[in-house]
Amino acid sequence: MNSPQTESVRLPDLISRYLLKLAESDAFAREQTLAQLYYSTALDGSGLVPAQIASLLDTHEINSVLTSSQLMVIDYQQGQDLIAGWAINQQPLSLLDVQRLGACVMHHTGGLTPQLLQSVDSRLGEWRTYEVMGTSGSYERPHKVQKALLEVIKQTNTSLQGKQTLRQLYETSFRLHYELIRIHPFAEGNGRVARLLMNYVQLYRRQPQSVVFVEDRLSYLGALDLAFRSKSIRPFDAFMFGQLTKLVSTDGY
């Protein structure tokens, strides 16, 4: 088994090879795009495989015949387009952007979460207004959600405007992913938003978009849980760098 130091030496070369293959093969690039959709939506319950996703994106019309899995994929693909536009235009993140992305990924599959005083509509990207408990304790208090998001957005923008090594860039993306889950700003769709924001940071510097492989879902949740409990992002960073290495050390997905 390779040591962390060995992996850190190998990773830039592996990423360079992966990027070269993306540039040289349209078929490979499309395969990776479809798999991006597959892995993130499968983590949240979609039953579609990449071939079904390809067919859906080539032929779909939004109507009542589509399943919830199909609608989830369509919404996620719109989210991918949104973050790609921000990255291409070198657009810094804002609180409104995060809210727009939350609304985007829940556009067709979200709805009202009834509360005693005020319902929250995930289709509109409305902020969570009630307490939520996870396996490791409570997420951010609702009245602190926007302030906490503003802080992590500021940190992310500052990091992207400065010089970063490849590892530092991915650490920035993984931290944004982790903090979005920890803050839990939305009633639904937090995982998808977190993974898309992670990819935004990576696309900003034209680096491969990392994923969480669906077969590693339990390890993903375990890494998040350990990071929350220990109040240290290191377990999550280690897991995500492992996922990135798994991606670029093969022929992709």
Rank of each mutant, 00 (worst) to 15 (best):
S3M: 02
T6S: 08
E7A: 07
S8F: 05
R10L: 15
R10G: 03
R10S: 15
L11Q: 03
L11E: 04
P12S: 10
L14S: 08
S16G: 06
K21R: 14
A23M: 08
E24G: 04
A27E: 13
A27D: 14
F28M: 08
R30F: 09
Q32A: 07
L34N: 06
Y38W: 01
Y39A: 01
A42I: 00
G45R: 06
G47D: 14
V49F: 11
V49W: 08
V49R: 11
I53S: 09
L56P: 04
H60A: 07
S64P: 04
M72T: 06
Q77A: 03
G79Q: 02
Q80G: 01
G85W: 04
Q90A: 12
S94R: 10
D97C: 06
V98I: 15
R100W: 07
G102W: 02
C104I: 12
M106W: 07
M106C: 12
G111W: 05
T113R: 13
L116T: 12
Q118R: 15
S119E: 05
R123S: 03
Y130M: 10
V132S: 10
G134F: 10
G137F: 12
R141V: 12
V145M: 12
L150R: 11
K154W: 04
Q155V: 08
N157D: 09
Q164N: 15
S173Y: 08
F174S: 01
F174E: 00
L176N: 02
E179I: 02
I181G: 03
R182M: 06
P185M: 13
P185E: 11
P185I: 12
N190M: 06
R195S: 08
M198K: 13
Y200D: 04
Q202T: 11
Q202S: 10
L203N: 13
Y204F: 15
R205G: 07
R205E: 12
R206V: 03
R206Q: 15
R206S: 15
R206A: 13
Q207A: 14
Q207I: 04
V214D: 02
D216C: 02
G222Q: 13
A223G: 10
L224N: 01
D225A: 08
D225C: 04
L226T: 10
A227Q: 01
S232W: 03
F239G: 02
Q243K: 04
Q243L: 02
L244H: 05
T250G: 10
T250A: 14
T250K: 15
G252A: 07
G252Y: 03
